[in-house]
Design a protein around this nucleic acid. Sequence first.
DNA 1: GAGTTTGAAACT
DNA 2: CAGTTTCAAACTC
Length: 771
Amino acid sequence: MDTPEKTTQIATPLSKFEDSPVFNYINNLSPIKPVKSVHVAQTFHSLSFASLPSIFTSPHVSSHKESRFVIRNIHSDPAKLEPLSNNGNQVTNNDGAIVDASQHNSNSTEVQENFNSGVPVGDTSVEALDEHLNFAIELPQTLKYDCGSPDGDSTPFCGNPNDCEVSREASSGEEVQFQGTCQAEQKKDATVCDWDNLISDAADLLIFNSPMDTEGYKGLVQKSQDQSVEFCASHGEIHGVRMGHPIVSYEKDEIEGAFTQPGETIRAKEINQAQGEYPANGNANMILPGNQSEKMDEVEMSFPCKVVSNLQRGFRRRCLDFEMIGARRKNLGDGSSTMSSILQQPDENNVTKDKKLVSLRLGGDSSRHILPGIGLHLNALALTSKDGKKIKHETLSSGISLSSSTASFQSPSNVNEITESLTSAAAEKDVNPIENDFTLAEDVPGESAYLVNEELVQTSPKKKRRRLEGEPEACKRCNCKKSKCLKLYCECFAAGVYCIEPCSCQDCYNKPMHEDTVLATRKQIESRNPLAFAPKVIRSSESVPEAGDDSSKTPASARHKRGCNCKKSNCLKKYCECYQGGVGCSINCRCEGCKNAFGRKDGSVLMEDLEAEDETEAHENGEIDRSSQKTEIQNKEEQNPNSTLPTTPLGLCRPLVHLSLPSHIKPPRSLLGIGSSSGLYAGQKYGKPNIFRSQAKFDKQSEPLADDNMPDILLQGSYSPSTAIKSSSPNSKRISPPHSNNLLGSSPGRRSGRKLILQSIPSFPSLTPQH
DNA sequence: GAGTTTGAAACT
DNA sequence: CAGTTTCAAACTC
């Protein structure tokens, strides 16, 4: 139902990307074609809590960074490929890589290889059933993703011994990546890494819901989403898979080339074989050309699905279908997803499917329903939280709750471990909106995952808003009284999710019961504004450039879609959508007296307190002292001991939000966990990437801005896409806005900003090949 | 919890 | 497209 809308929404963003050379490049690379896109889409939705908005925007996400994802997708594709295989030639045409995978195992598409590379060779995966193989593959990737500390054991994730092995190996692979040496063989290390990875992954998941994320940090996000989906499909087994997804995506993003090693190729082949075995999946193959990342997810998902019973498959497909629809549409239009395709109205069939999906899902939970399109995530999450395990099975299709789902599937012990790992990861990494969730999980070790989700969902009305602030969007609850929750005033509706019990809305029509009405209303709104349901905060192409660097991080440029129009809040309160989204104001903003801590309209970032005061004056006078803004931020950051990342609000890194935001100022929802805004995610995303990648890589242009602490953050921010964006870092603003020039002149950041943009695009393509 | 403020969304 | 109204979140008390 919604899916069509999503597609449209997504499409628009995608179109941009599509136009970009990078996008084209990715498309070419990815074997996955739009065919299965649906599955993927769902996964994304389900996974991303915050992402909901992102979901809408997802198209953006997919855009650049997708290349890596694409790889993954390829990887996954094989599993799903059946359909692809069927399509065979067509696929190849669109995506050479994919085709290879499906048709030519030996060839094991290049892309796939890349995916697999991360994994220590299909070792375990190969041994395992084809399905297992698929999972194994994914797992390794996931592990790779976060090379972080190997605290956790991969085992918990693994539903099957085989999987566990795989995950371990995969973890090793991750370590390798981080270390720079690809020694997949180190299983022990891998285990450690696995935990870290898991954690990171979890964090990522939490953080990145939006498709957008997938690109940059997308990997993370996608992983999360994918994971959720996977879990839904398969229970215990899936765990490993999920983790794998995130990792995989990560690898793609950051490591991409690194892992493409012989082993990888093998896996790809294996995968292909497996696919052949599981032709039933066929449908799963849907991969949106536009969203390669999604494709990746789908593919991965498909694997689990295969493993799972046919019924499960059905669920997955349904889930996927939502997004898939968009993909299909894209496919229909062209092999490549284009705006037009997205914009195209959803096929009735698709729509019906979506509806069906919804209804099915709903059957599981009466309370929450996910709108077909965008909002699936939230609802799904909610469902999972409440119903807990039950929901999982039923809602699995939705793939909603990441943690929860995982927990349910996994053994209790595993769950705890996972949750812990996640939490730890979140803490370490920066924080994503998700962190909150993780923390909750920590509180309840046993059922952490469920609890976490539940908490988010179930919070009392009072908590609602607070949660919203700190919590992921999934927690959203509206309080509409006159809009019937059928207007964008309604956060739930705007997020593409049905209202749920916690909502205090009156005369609410945003419920499954009124699905038709909801859909019709959405269409109307979209007709007026195709991007109405798109994420308000979108990553700019800027992130792309970074991708070239290979750091997933890049980000940078998250911006509010339309910009704010603040008059009195100085963009320092949540009234400001930019601030709420954790992104700096941009040229598009028409705000007055902008003091957005994440980045002023002028482009100035926080310089320093000293200047800030003066700036405030100056700002009032002239409006802008970029430096002054920066100073504010910095001050805040400084205040936070933790704030290693003082600068960026988004927090590039962990401390992100909190740190970035002034003590007195609460971090915007998005920052906290909402992932809805892509920007936030980006920031979070970056966080990991940042960590991984040496900030130093990039020029320290930003340094001047940062003080002692700031420099790090700034550096990260400037370098990392996310940071750059949120963090007021000069770079981000500089880049995007024309004002940047001034800034540039003043601060070193400008280079980074511009470079990022320019580099990103070109680099992107290069990256895949390079690694 | 009630009331106010704010700015986006919707309307004209 | 601009101005106004409506709306609900964010905020304050």
